[in-house]
């Protein structure tokens, strides 16, 4: 139980960040003419930001189902990496059913934050850390679709930085302590910025940009710094 509560606590900032992002998702869905129920069901069954935004775009523009499947796959393929990375840190005794539940909660933020723990990641901890973000993600979608005029535009817009500020708070402490981590982050940022600036490449979807930047940065890092026990930082 203590593990679960610790997870719950760690999930609070993610939950708040998710409310603001999913609020925007609900808002966009409402504007595009999608029913509130459909938007909330998408959030409850997908629990992912970029993939849902892209998927909704395709649905609202009456795109094909194959296109939808492909776009979802490409944008979310990064979870394959995260899931593999997580498989190395999960308590080895964790059974299949528990792993199936944990898999559902793998998002960029939940993954990144749970990996900050030292030692094995237990089922209870992971269940805890995914609980509030899941509720926040679903509830935020509902709020955005239901009461799109609830918040003044100014406040709604400034909430957009919440999730990024949280990311900064996650990466700064380990980057201060570890030179390799700092370098990996700098490479990822440089590649990501380049992909946004270079004309031919800037048309790539957000998911692709994350995949390419991650592969480049973690790849170069693995080549230069093999066996760095980053987890202990």
């Amino acid at each position: 139980m203590r593990e679960y509560i610790r997870g719950l606590k760690d999930g609070i900032p993610i939950c708040l960040g998710y409310i603001s992002v999913s609020f925007a998702f609900g808002l966009m869905a409402a504007r595009g003419g999608m029913s509130l129920a459909a938007a909330v069901i998408i959030s409850m069954t997908n629990l992912t930001s970029a993939g849902q935004f892209a998927g909704m775009d395709i649905i609202l523009s009456n795109g094909g189902l194959l296109e939808l499947a492909l776009a979802t796959f490409i944008i979310n393929i990064r979870y394959l990496l995260m899931s593999l990375s997580l498989s190395q840190r999960v308590d080895p005794k964790t059974g299949t059913l528990k792993r199936l539940v944990m898999s559902f909660g793998i998002t960029d933020e939940i993954f990144a934050l749970s990996m900050q723990r030292s030692g094995d990641i237990t089922f209870r901890y992971f269940l805890g850390i995914m609980t509030l973000p899941y509720i926040g993600w679903s509830f935020g979608t509902f709020l955005g679709g239901f009461a799109s005029a609830l918040l003044p535009e100014l406040i709604r817009k400034s909430l957009g930085i919440a999730i990024y500020a949280m990311f900064i708070a996650i990466i700064v402490p380990p980057a201060k302590k570890s030179r390799p981590v700092l370098n990996i982050i700098l490479i990822a940022v440089a590649v990501s910025a380049a992909l946004n600036i270079i004309p031919v490449l800037s048309g790539l979807s957000g998911g692709w940009k994350i995949i390419i930047s991650t592969l480049a940065a973690a790849g170069i890092g693995a080549y230069i710094y093999p066996e760095k026990e980053v987890r202990d930082i």
């Binding site: 990024y164 980057a175 990996i184 990822a188 990501s192 991650t214 940065a217």
Partner: peptide, 23 residues
């Protein structure tokens, strides 16, 4: 050791790439 290091670096790379320049 290379694959281990790679997987350990993934979360940092993901967060860096997601934050900049989108923030």
């Amino acid at each position: 050791p290379h694959i281990k290091a790679f997987l350990n670096f993934v979360p940092y790379a993901v967060l860096g790439a997601m934050t900049f320049p989108d923030v």
